[in-house]
Simulated assay, not measured.
Amino acid sequence: MGFHTFDAESAARLEDAAERYRYCSCEELLGALALAGDETVADLGSGTGFYADDVAPHVARLHAVDVQAAMHEFYCEKGLPGNVSLATADVADLPFATDALDAAYATMTFHEFASDASLAELARVCRDGARLVVVDWSAAGDGESGPPVTERYDAADADAMLADAGFTVERTVERVETFVAVAER
């Protein structure tokens, strides 16, 4: 896979609500996360904080994780919610204690970090029973938007990778251009 990262020079494009919500709405993400309000959650590949801003009001603590400091700079300029902290890190090397997270999610970034090492690290920091939601571009899609199809996983591949890392996949939906996987640690 490509494991490329989104060009930080184009960060403003990530704030286009009509485009972003076309592929994953706030309601869909929050529904899949099934939050109670007291959780510590990580946004994996948080970019400009677009989805972090949606999730933050519904959790106790949100860690916005991105490998690019420039994305965090953009987010800081927008203004961080009080319960959001920034972590500049690769998913394969998360700065959290074992069992630190109650939930995690990745919106259109799984293809950027998915590897055995990253998923093992994610399993380490998620407590037993933690929920993981992945919404990403699908290799079964036609490539109308997002990365090239050759740099994507399909739902079945993602399910297998999550299962190999110790997650139990509760449900997966393959859609026209994307897939959604909901799993539990």
Rank of each mutant, 00 (worst) to 15 (best):
A100R: 11
A100Q: 12
L101C: 14
L101R: 14
L101N: 13
L101M: 15
A103M: 02
A103I: 01
A103T: 01
A104P: 07
A104H: 04
Y105K: 09
T107E: 01
M108A: 02
T109E: 04
T109K: 01
F110K: 04
F110M: 05
F110P: 04
H111V: 07
H111N: 09
F113P: 13
F113C: 13
S115Y: 14
A117L: 15
A117T: 15
S118N: 15
S118V: 14
S118M: 15
S118F: 14
L119A: 10
A120K: 12
A120V: 05
E121M: 10
E121A: 12
E121P: 09
A123H: 14
A123F: 03
V125Q: 01
V125R: 03
V125N: 05
C126A: 00
C126T: 02
C126P: 04
R127D: 12
D128I: 01
G129L: 04
R131K: 09
R131H: 05
R131V: 12
V133Q: 12
V133N: 12
V133R: 12
V134T: 08
V134H: 07
V135R: 01
D136N: 06
W137P: 05
S138Q: 04
A139G: 09
A139K: 14
A140V: 07
A140P: 05
G141K: 06
G141D: 00
G141N: 06
D142M: 09
G143S: 03
G143Q: 01
G143C: 01
E144R: 15
S145V: 11
S145I: 08
S145W: 04
G146S: 00
G146F: 01
G146R: 07
P147R: 06
P147W: 09
V149E: 00
T150Q: 14
T150F: 11
E151S: 13
E151L: 08
E151N: 11
R152M: 14
R152V: 12
Y153L: 15
Y153T: 02
D154V: 05
D154G: 03
D154N: 11
D154H: 04
A155Q: 05
A155C: 03
A155N: 01
A156Y: 04
A156C: 05
A156K: 07
D157W: 02
D157H: 00
D157V: 00
D157Q: 14
A160D: 02
A160H: 03
A160V: 00
M161N: 03
L162T: 02
D164V: 00
A165L: 08
G166I: 13
G166R: 10
F167A: 09
F167C: 10
V169D: 11
E170W: 03
